[in-house]
């Protein structure tokens, strides 16, 4: 700024109110960010404070109970959530990634059916999760007679996150420069060799990040499970995919609807556990992204 101080007489260089606008704009941006962070912080502090008395090993060592909130735990919820997420990852990730590969690398975008598919994947990502719950209940639980089992829950949640997995995997695949594909094909590699040996390895960071974020969304879902009628009080851990189950968000929902104050403390403690699992998964996503990006 000091550099421009001399030619004042010749040319008008004085500010015309622009610095003020500049300043206001920055303040607006910063306060938007602050609002988001403050509310998140308040939420965390509130939940931690509320649930603190119950944050002890009994929380994850014991099973839930509606008679003795002071010793009730959430073990079946934790295990149910882990089962659902594990099975969802097994089903939704390969399907989603392969679908993304098809759409990015094979589909002829001028064909009408491919356009319809593309449009509908974006639409599906916006469908409320309760609708997937209805689908799971009607088709998977009743029509296919899978009942209210881990399998039914995982298939339903897989369908729910599939569009998100597809969309994020497509973006990661699209970010691989076309010159890499050309270089590979020009050496006599087949299209599949090019995808398998060049495109997919190069898009791992993006695909991993997107997948984990999609699974994180699945962890927090309560609505489809409510619809599926996953039992509210399950006093055992799932023993397999055909076992009945509950998940953490549902457990929390159940605790909160009880009238006794001790249940609300229990719910807050369970929320802390749920958030911890979420944060853990997100940090794995960040770690994966950084680890693979270093190689570039």
């Amino acid at each position: 700024m000091a550099v421009l101080s001399t030619p004042k007489s010749a040319v008008e260089l004085a500010s015309k109110g622009r610095p003020l606008k500049e300043h206001l704009f920055r303040v607006a941006l910063l306060s938007s960010l602050a609002i988001a962070l403050i509310f998140l912080g308040m939420l965390l502090i509130y939940v931690l404070e509320e649930g603190w008395p119950r944050l002890s090993p009994t929380l994850w060592e014991n099973m839930p109970s509606i008679r003795r909130p002071e010793t009730a735990g959430i073990q079946s919820g934790i295990f149910g959530t882990l089962w659902i997420i594990g099975l969802t990852a097994l089903m939704a990730l390969p399907t989603g990634i392969l679908a993304a590969v098809y759409l990015e690398e094979y589909a002829d975008r001028t064909r009408w059916y491919n356009k319809v598919i593309e449009l509908n994947i974006s639409n599906l990502a916006a469908v409320p999760s309760i609708v997937y719950g209805i689908l799971g209940l009607g088709i998977i639980a009743r029509w296919l007679q899978f009942g209210f089992t881990v399998m039914t829950g995982a298939i339903t949640v897989s369908l729910l996150v599939l569009p998100i997995v597809i969309i994020s995997a497509r973006e990661a695949i699209r970010a691989v420069p076309p010159s890499i594909r050309e270089g590979s094909l020009a050496l006599g590699a087949t299209q599949w060799q090019t995808i398998w040996r060049q495109v997919l390895p190069a898009s791992i960071p993006g695909i991993a990040t997107g997948s984990i974020l999609a699974l994180s969304r699945a962890i927090g879902e309560a609505a489809p499970f409510l619809m599926l009628g996953a039992a509210t009080l399950v006093r055992f851990n799932p023993e397999g995919v055909w076992s009945s189950f509950t998940v953490l968000p549902l457990q929390i929902y159940n605790f909160i609807s009880q009238s006794r104050e001790e249940f609300h403390v229990l719910a807050a403690a369970a929320i802390v556990i749920l958030l911890a699992i979420l944060l853990l998964m997100n940090s794995v996503a960040i770690w994966l992204r950084n680890r693979y990006q270093k190689r570039w």
């Binding site: 050309e182 270089g183 590979s184 020009a186 050496l187 060799q193 040996r197 190069a202 190689r295």
Partner: peptide, 23 residues
């Protein structure tokens, strides 16, 4: 050989070995 150098984001060795390997 292309206009912009487009080595694969891999080791130098693997870049050269890639063609023979896929073939």
């Amino acid at each position: 050989v292309f206009q912009k150098p487009n080595p694969f984001p891999k080791a130098i060795y693997d870049n050269v070995a890639y063609g023979p390997r896929v073939n």
